[in-house]
Simulated assay, not measured.
Amino acid sequence: MATDYDAPRKTEEEMSEDSLEELKSRRNDKNSGKVDEDEVEAAESFELPGADLSHEELTVRVLPRQANEFTCASCFLVKSTSQLAETRGNDKYCVDCV
Protein backbone atom coordinates (compact mmCIF):
# COMPACT_ATOMS: atom_id res chain seq x y z
CA MET A 1 0.00 0.00 0.00
CA ALA A 2 1.34 3.40 -0.99
CA THR A 3 1.77 6.04 1.70
CA ASP A 4 1.52 9.75 1.03
CA TYR A 5 4.16 11.25 3.29
CA ASP A 6 3.18 14.81 2.29
CA ALA A 7 -0.38 14.47 3.61
CA PRO A 8 -1.04 16.11 6.99
CA ARG A 9 -1.00 13.62 9.85
CA LYS A 10 -3.94 13.25 12.20
CA THR A 11 -3.53 13.66 15.91
CA GLU A 12 -4.72 11.01 18.34
CA GLU A 13 -7.74 13.15 19.15
CA GLU A 14 -8.76 13.34 15.49
CA MET A 15 -8.28 9.59 15.11
CA SER A 16 -10.51 8.89 18.14
CA GLU A 17 -13.16 11.25 16.74
CA ASP A 18 -13.08 9.38 13.45
CA SER A 19 -13.56 6.08 15.19
CA LEU A 20 -16.45 7.48 17.27
CA GLU A 21 -18.11 8.76 14.13
CA GLU A 22 -17.66 5.38 12.51
CA LEU A 23 -19.21 3.62 15.51
CA LYS A 24 -22.16 6.00 15.48
CA SER A 25 -22.75 5.33 11.82
CA ARG A 26 -22.65 1.58 12.47
CA ARG A 27 -25.17 1.97 15.29
CA ASN A 28 -27.59 3.65 12.90
CA ASP A 29 -27.12 0.88 10.36
CA LYS A 30 -30.10 -1.48 10.65
CA ASN A 31 -28.20 -4.56 9.49
CA SER A 32 -25.14 -4.20 11.73
CA GLY A 33 -26.68 -6.03 14.72
CA LYS A 34 -28.29 -8.85 12.79
CA VAL A 35 -26.89 -12.32 13.13
CA ASP A 36 -26.80 -14.49 10.05
CA GLU A 37 -28.75 -17.52 11.21
CA ASP A 38 -28.91 -19.12 7.79
CA GLU A 39 -25.54 -20.84 8.34
CA VAL A 40 -26.72 -22.35 11.62
CA GLU A 41 -29.92 -23.63 10.09
CA ALA A 42 -28.01 -25.04 7.14
CA ALA A 43 -25.54 -26.82 9.42
CA GLU A 44 -28.37 -28.46 11.36
CA SER A 45 -29.86 -29.86 8.17
CA PHE A 46 -26.64 -31.63 7.16
CA GLU A 47 -26.54 -35.32 7.91
CA LEU A 48 -23.20 -37.01 7.68
CA PRO A 49 -23.07 -40.57 6.40
CA GLY A 50 -22.85 -42.99 9.29
CA ALA A 51 -23.69 -40.31 11.84
CA ASP A 52 -26.89 -41.99 13.01
CA LEU A 53 -25.74 -44.25 15.85
CA SER A 54 -29.13 -44.60 17.55
CA HIS A 55 -29.26 -48.34 16.79
CA GLU A 56 -25.79 -48.97 18.25
CA GLU A 57 -25.17 -50.19 21.79
CA LEU A 58 -22.11 -49.31 23.80
CA THR A 59 -20.64 -52.04 25.90
CA VAL A 60 -17.87 -51.34 28.35
CA ARG A 61 -15.93 -53.92 30.28
CA VAL A 62 -14.95 -52.58 33.70
CA LEU A 63 -11.81 -54.09 35.12
CA PRO A 64 -11.29 -54.38 38.85
CA ARG A 65 -8.62 -52.22 40.49
CA GLN A 66 -5.18 -53.65 39.93
CA ALA A 67 -2.58 -53.96 42.67
CA ASN A 68 -0.26 -51.47 40.92
CA GLU A 69 -2.92 -48.73 40.44
CA PHE A 70 -4.47 -45.96 42.50
CA THR A 71 -7.05 -43.23 41.90
CA CYS A 72 -5.75 -39.70 42.41
CA ALA A 73 -7.83 -37.75 44.95
CA SER A 74 -7.36 -34.53 42.95
CA CYS A 75 -7.81 -35.37 39.25
CA PHE A 76 -9.66 -38.68 39.84
CA LEU A 77 -7.65 -40.47 37.17
CA VAL A 78 -6.43 -44.01 37.63
CA LYS A 79 -2.66 -43.90 37.70
CA SER A 80 0.16 -46.37 38.11
CA THR A 81 1.79 -46.52 41.52
CA SER A 82 4.97 -45.27 39.84
CA GLN A 83 3.19 -41.88 39.55
CA LEU A 84 2.27 -41.73 43.25
CA ALA A 85 3.65 -38.50 44.74
CA GLU A 86 2.21 -38.46 48.25
CA THR A 87 -0.43 -39.88 50.53
CA ARG A 88 -2.49 -37.75 52.94
CA GLY A 89 -4.59 -39.99 55.15
CA ASN A 90 -6.46 -42.31 52.79
CA ASP A 91 -6.05 -39.93 49.84
CA LYS A 92 -3.36 -40.53 47.26
CA TYR A 93 -2.08 -37.85 44.88
CA CYS A 94 -0.24 -38.25 41.58
CA VAL A 95 2.87 -36.35 40.54
CA ASP A 96 0.83 -34.16 38.15
CA CYS A 97 -1.42 -32.82 40.93
CA VAL A 98 1.17 -32.16 43.64
Rank of each mutant, 00 (worst) to 15 (best):
M1K: 14
M1V: 06
M1E: 09
A2T: 12
T3G: 12
T3P: 01
D4A: 11
D4R: 09
Y5F: 15
A7D: 15
A7E: 15
P8M: 15
P8C: 14
R9F: 11
K10Y: 05
K10T: 12
K10I: 03
K10W: 07
T11A: 08
E12L: 15
E12K: 06
E13S: 08
E14A: 10
S16G: 13
S16W: 00
S16V: 04
S16E: 04
E17Q: 11
D18L: 10
D18I: 06
S19V: 12
S19H: 04
L20H: 13
E21N: 05
E21D: 06
E22K: 03
E22R: 00
E22G: 00
S25M: 12
S25C: 04
S25D: 05
R26A: 08
R26T: 10
R27D: 06
R27P: 02
N28T: 09
N28M: 12
D29E: 09
D29V: 06
D29L: 06
K30E: 07
N31M: 09
N31E: 04
S32M: 04
G33C: 14
G33R: 15
K34R: 08
K34V: 13
K34N: 05
V35H: 13
V35D: 13
D36P: 06
D36S: 05
D38Y: 11
E39C: 08
E39S: 01
E39Q: 02
V40I: 01
E41P: 09
E41H: 12
E41F: 10
A42G: 10
A43E: 03
S45I: 11
S45A: 14
S45M: 11
F46D: 14
F46S: 11
F46W: 02
L48S: 00
P49D: 03
P49K: 00
G50D: 04
G50C: 07
G50L: 04
G50M: 04
A51L: 05
A51Q: 06
L53F: 12
L53C: 12
L53K: 09
S54C: 10
S54A: 10
S54P: 05
H55Q: 04
H55I: 10
E57K: 15
E57F: 15
T59M: 11
T59K: 09
V60Q: 14
R61W: 15
V62A: 13
V62M: 13
L63M: 03
P64W: 05
P64D: 00
R65S: 01
R65P: 01
Q66W: 03
N68P: 00
E69N: 14
E69Y: 01
E69H: 08
C72F: 08
C72N: 04
C72E: 01
C72P: 07
A73Y: 02
C75H: 12
C75L: 02
L77W: 08
L77C: 09
L77M: 06
V78C: 03
V78N: 10
V78I: 00
K79F: 13
K79G: 00
T81E: 08
T81K: 14
T81V: 11
S82Y: 11
Q83Y: 13
Q83G: 05
L84H: 02
L84D: 03
L84C: 00
A85N: 00
E86F: 07
E86N: 02
T87H: 07
T87C: 04
R88Q: 10
G89C: 06
N90M: 15
N90L: 14
N90I: 15
D91M: 11
K92V: 02
Y93T: 05
D96E: 09
D96C: 03
C97G: 03
C97E: 02
C97F: 02
